[in-house]
């Protein structure tokens, strides 16, 4: 990831990974990566002016996936979907202190990457899916 200062056209290398969010004033970027050999996700907050970075622990559970990040009043928020096999939840995590707010809980399966948050952070939309008819295997014969 690189940052460019549009007033000076100065380009700065930040870190390997993909951009997840930029702070409102553009001073910080959240960069996610999946480095080998483990390919376990890492997340860093990187200064766009110095490239200094600090690793952040998102604290996600094994069946929880973050699909959106946003700085709100200086706090980095992670929007996640969590599944436990029976229910799905949309959660908002405050990254700095690990606080979790459960926004939605449903028995329907939620796609982790098929949701959206409005720009002002007041509304959320999400897709669910429910299987109504499973495929049939070849006929099984009883004696």
């Amino acid at each position: 990831m690189y940052a460019i200062d549009l007033s000076t056209n100065t380009v700065r290398f930040l870190r390997l990974g993909s951009l997840a969010a930029l702070s409102g004033d553009g001073s910080s970027a959240l960069i996610r990566s999946y480095p080998p050999p483990s390919f376990v996700e890492e997340a860093y907050v990187v200064s766009t002016t110095t490239s200094m970075s600090r690793r952040v622990n998102l604290g996600l559970e094994p069946t929880e996936h973050a699909w959106h990040f946003k700085w709100e009043a200086g706090e980095l928020k992670a929007y996640t979907v969590y599944h436990d096999g029976l229910v799905s939840e949309i959660r908002v995590r405050t990254v700095s202190n690990g606080n979790i707010s459960v926004i939605v809980r449903t028995n329907e399966f939620m796609w982790f990457d098929a949701a959206s948050v409005s720009n002002d952070g007041t509304q959320i939309a999400w897709w669910t899916t429910e299987c109504l008819s499973q495929p049939q295997e070849a006929a099984t014969f009883r004696k």
Binding site: I103, T122, I124, A125, E130, L132, P135, Q136, F141
Partner: peptide, 26 residues
């Protein structure tokens, strides 16, 4: 006496719903 058993995984027909909600008062 044939019986059909659901296969593991997959789905023939699925229902998809798109929902919206406020965050403060879901």
């Amino acid at each position: 006496n044939r019986v059909f058993v659901p296969a593991a995984g997959g789905c023939n027909v699925q229902e998809m719903n798109l929902y919206a909600s406020g965050i403060v008062s879901p």
